[in-house]
Amino acid sequence: MSFDPNRDYPLGAQRPELVTTPSGVPLSELTLAAAREGRIDGAEMRATPRTLRLQAEVARAAGRPQLAENLERAAELASVPDDLLLEVYTALRPGRATVVELERWATRLEELGATATAAFVREAAAAYEERGLVRAQ
């Protein structure tokens, strides 16, 4: 599959064969008939990390580096469980976590393959420490 981010957007219309659900069902098979027969599942109707990375490529090619980075973080977070997402968000709120705790969350994200997001959390921890936004102990 060659992908041209300048030409292949929208993926759903231009390159549907590149788009699948997390378990690999192609976009073209996401039909009412398939749903009636129980061949697709509601929890499956979401973007894969790969699709989000393709969208990041599209954003970068369109001259939007920050949106691309956001979508790359999203690609990493796509496979992170819901509860963990909300826990990391809470830890990033002001005065919620110590530097050590934030480092622990960064490590946890790294273990899940979310390296860019882990670096983002570490960058936050450094800024919070200097601005007094970490929990005291």
Binding site: M45, L52, Q55, L67
Partner: peptide
């Protein structure tokens, strides 16, 4: 299906 293709994130 739009959620799967994620084109509307642009």
């Amino acid at each position: 299906r739009q959620r799967v293709a994620a084109d509307y994130l642009q």
